[in-house]
Write a protein that binds this DNA or RNA. Structure first.
Lengths: 222, 222
DNA sequence: GCTCAAGCGTGACAAAGTCACATACGGCGA
DNA sequence: TCGCCGTATGTGACTTTGTCACGCTTGAGC
């Protein structure tokens, strides 16, 4: 690591803050480490901090009363956990929860500092609102997908996303079902059809992508 | 109307602002009137103002590429159009649009004034964030409903909401389908079943609620 | 090698979406 | 008053997705 506070270079949106504010931000925040699998926010767990992710990934998902899940979005290194935090500022009950998918290193900005920065810096406000609005866009897209898109298309898209160019994905069918907010059986049938077409090979707990082009073709049918 | 600026009493969250800020808000904003049916925000129409609704109602909906629609939430008198505005501050493309359902009277706060108020008043910030977070909650709930709830239950809920205690609702089945993001045929069949059970009476363009208790019972099943 | 929980496959059915077309209502002009 | 016509609604046939209830398979750990 460079020096303490070197983290700020990871956030282009904060780069051009006045030095004084950068120092405020750095001195009043702390770097926290969270193990993979830990729950960062959730119903009944109001956060005291605004989080900026340095390393790792966070998954934000919704859990329905019946126990079914749907993934809303992911936060990657260099991004902020804008929506969940902003949400929980509203003092309402939310069903969404944030889970560390990997070991996570993040900057925690206390609420008071966050509030202070919002007040003092138009640039900081813009940083926060931009990140936030990207999340709201994600929510709009999810509503659109869930309401109107075919499941095989959504699955193809998600497989390509999750693989990130790699040859395969290490994921169970139940996990894929939770990603998309559907039932495991549905995933099972669609994957069987993909395999019949020789687009993928299935094994217990992982999927090899054999014909990325074909999957991509389906994914683009939107 | 009382005196110019008397509108501020309609917003409890702004009641306790310092007089100075109240005056800034009142003097720099204008009251606008919009006819029923006009589009307030939409893809390609970035708003220059933060809106506070004095009279009327606004419907915010999403339009998919295939032309199907789903209603996201409504803004009533005394509320702010927080989400749409905040969204559009992010300089991204959105599919959501806001339509005046009735003639609408609203206070338009210019972006610069809005920004200034955000900077100067923790109370104003809280007003904005609270309104905003309520909308995000709505989006979470919609995702939950669309992904996991049965359509007959959603329809029962929506009928009760739209009737607001009145004996009936003046709405076409196509409009109901657009409310819930489904197809007209689905609405037709569910309503036919409701009628068979003598819960409602159907006529062209309107629905009379005959057994509110039964509908409510179904609506409460999650 | 054996065990056994987790992962996966499948048939049967229900709910919801799609497509195509038939029918009914009701406002309006003749 | 009557018929016209656009809109609204009803319906059958089929596909896709969700639910339920099983049973089979896999492979990690003993």
């Amino acid at each position: 690591m460079a020096h303490a506070g070197g983290w700020i270079v990871q956030f282009p949106g904060l780069q051009r803050l006045p030095d004084e504010l950068k120092q405020t931000l750095v001195s009043q925040s702390t770097v926290v480490v969270l193990p993979a699998g830990s729950r960062i926010y959730g119903p009944g767990q109001a956060p005291a901090n605004y989080l900026l992710l340095l390393d790792g990934a966070i998954r934000v998902q919704q859990v329905s009363e019946s126990g079914r899940e749907i993934v809303l979005y992911r936060v990657a290194a260099g991004e902020s956990c804008a929506l969940t935090t902003a949400c929980l500022m509203g003092y309402e009950d939310y069903l969404a929860e944030a889970i560390a998918e990997t070991d996570v290193r993040a900057v925690a900005i206390p609420r008071s500092t966050f509030d202070d920065m919002i007040a003092r810096s138009p640039m900081f406000r813009r940083f926060v609102f931009t990140a936030f609005s990207a999340r709201v866009t994600d929510l709009f897209k999810i509503i659109d997908q869930v309401a109107f898109a075919r499941m095989d298309i959504r699955l193809a898209q998600r497989l390509l996303e999750l693989s990130q160019g790699a040859a395969g994905v290490s994921v169970t069918q139940q996990q894929l079902a939770s990603e998309l907010g559907t039932a495991r059986e549905v995933i099972s049938r669609i994957l069987a059809e993909f395999q019949r077409r020789r687009w993928v090979s299935l094994t217990r707990g992982s999927i090899v992508i054999d014909d990325r082009l074909a999957l991509d073709g389906l994914a683009r049918e939107r």
